[in-house]
Design a protein around this nucleic acid. Structure first.
Lengths: 362, 362
DNA sequence: GTGAAAGCGCTAACAT
DNA sequence: ATGTTAGCGCTTTCAC
């Protein structure tokens, strides 16, 4: 894309002359209360003629309500905070976009913060958001099992995103990691593979991940031995390293299930450099369903997460009408997006997305 | 990545019992002013013993200052807004991350909003941010020549990002589009290409883009005829369409300069499907310097934008110390990241990033 | 249908 | 060094 930055001549944030409710009231010849009634469409009715006068005054004066004052009075800022590890990561940027949409639909603005895989920064972000009087926080912790104590001490409604814990006393919505891994591995098995590796991402907290369980279950259920587990970061670079390690494996598997699409992309490069073709020599399935996976060569078969749906449920659980229901754990199913990297032949070179099956609940 | 969402038992935003400055004051046996002095480290000095008492009270009571009240009093929310077309686009998600970092470093929180290529939504976002008393807005408009009138009527300090206009009376910081295109095309020419196509993205506003100029200039300066221009969206899909059109070109060029990395990724797929190899049959250079371009196969030579530097300058221009300087136009140079797709042989398969040259100012 | 006024939590003069 | 207090702009109860 492009780039240029332009700025208004600065006058300092506070020197902009605020038009207040009072100015409008005076101009329209009414009281400040009436202006409020008009602006908020309540709680009292206003005569049509009066309302017209007020609206005209608002327009003429360029009045805009002061959200800070409103927030102070109401104790709610109509604002929520999002804490993610890294907005440059396609999975999280998509999630952030979906959360922003869902929040905006409910009239909430979204503070975005990155914790960059850094627990201390995550805490700082949480505190900063709490201080800013957000009405709630959606936290995608760098820890698979997030620090609940910290959250509680922040004393703020929160939704944990991207975690595999059933935190006591908390609602939860998430994806069925184990189930997703299962359908991926089962699909690989249906292609005739019997030696299937797992490329597993390592979390900051180094906790156990459901994808590992699902991979193992699928193998066991099919009476197959476990292939090697290669651990590395969830990133492209991590996948690249994992791919190189894979190439050095002694009894080299013929298939790999990778725990993220980015990792799979990295593996693709390592295999390509090693002269190993996908899917002819080695089949590969990723996890996430990111847009990038659709355009790799070969296109990447992947386990899709219902990002938008999850974002919507998370936001609604935080600030929606259903606010007062009891804690609830929502686990979303995944689905397999079949493309080329698994060995299936897709109509054209990989335009994508034949749906395979819903994941069984684990 | 993973996913699960967990939520605190809701009590409604306002029912959280606010601990106020007054509670702290009473508990510590001091006045509210002293609490302020301690919290803000000024403007008055406080005796060490008193300060200790206050800090202890703050800790014990779990006091957190109310940002809304502070914002109301001070007329500044220590908050800025970002308006981008699409946070799912890697270029913008990287930009957003960089802006967030730069803002956080200065103590500002960041509202993120997406306009989704929709001008009406962009305006709505602008108004919503203005109403929220942000101290400034960084706007990456869907229009190449953004609507200055709208911005002015919003009456809020603003920085335009990602635009090619020298808006009168506004500061500007941006990338040298024409210069970037030039170094890309010149590099292609140095590989011996004489018939070089341009894959040009189309903006919402359909305005003229400096990359087209740079491409033309480089060709003209080298005494070469202009190759075909293929217009499509800046996206992967757009690139894919462009690639298919390219394959049907009569006097088919041997090189393509694409106006975005995503477009180049799409072109890569189309060419691959058409049995045309990159760089052997056709050389390709992208624009942006996104991480994704490093992992395509072949890895993508691309014109890098100094995203982080631009974000920092933008934020600082908005809210930094230099706030009161006169309007200024900042144009950043680009540099060429040489990898495989242009025909250069890079040490390993494409680990990346030999720097070529700084762009001359256009 | 409209208005007066209290008060949300905070900052910073202005007292002491 | 510490305390008192006005007031930021808004919502809403309570009067009229």
């Amino acid at each position: 894309m492009t780039s240029i930055v332009t700025m208004t001549p600065l006058e300092g944030p506070s020197s902009r002359t605020q038009v207040t409710r009072k100015d409008v009231a005076r101009y329209a010849g009414v009281s400040t209360a009436v202006v409020s009634y008009v602006v908020n469409d309540g709680p009292k009715k206003v005569a049509p003629a009066t309302e017209a006068k007020v609206r005209e005054a608002i327009r003429l004066l360029g009045y805009r309500p002061n959200a800070a004052a409103r927030a102070l009075k109401l104790g709610s800022s109509k604002t929520i905070g999002l804490i993610i590890p890294d907005n440059s990561n396609p999975f999280f940027s998509l999630l952030a976009h979906a959360v922003e949409d869902a929040a905006a639909a409910l009239g909430y603005a979204l503070f975005m913060t990155n914790s960059d895989g850094n627990l201390a920064k995550e805490k700082r972000n949480l505190r900063s958001l709490a201080a800013r009087q957000v009405d709630g926080v959606i936290l995608s912790s760098v820890l698979l099992y997030p620090d609940l104590a910290e959250l509680e001490s922040a004393d703020i409604p929160a939704v944990l995103l991207n975690h595999a814990t059933d935190a006591a006393g908390f609602n939860s919505v998430g994806v069925d990691l184990a189930g997703g891994a299962r359908i991926a591995v089962e699909h690989l098995i249906s292609h005739g593979h019997t030696n299937i590796a797992l490329a597993m991402g390592t979390n900051t907290g180094n906790d156990f991940d459901g994808r590992e369980l699902g991979w193992r279950q699928a193998l066991t259920d099919a009476g197959l031995a476990e292939g090697p587990i290669i651990r590395s970061y969830f990133t492209r670079d991590g996948g690249y390293e994992a791919g190189k390690k894979f190439l050095r494996t002694v009894n080299r598997p013929t298939a790999i299930f990778a725990s993220s699409d980015m990792q799979a992309i990295g593996i693709l490069r390592a295999l390509s450099e090693g002269g190993v073709s996908v899917p002819e020599d080695v089949a590969l399935i990723g996890f996430d369903g990111s847009a990038e996976a659709e355009y790799s060569i070969p296109s990447l078969t992947t386990v899709e997460q219902p990002t938008r749906a999850m974002a919507e449920v998370a936001v609604r659980a935080l600030v929606g009408a259903s606010s007062d229901t009891e804690p609830e754990q929502r686990i979303f199913p995944t689905r397999l997006l079949i493309r080329r990297s698994c060995g299936c032949s897709v109509s054209n070179g990989g335009d994508s997305t034949a749906v395979h099956s819903l994941s069984p609940l684990s």
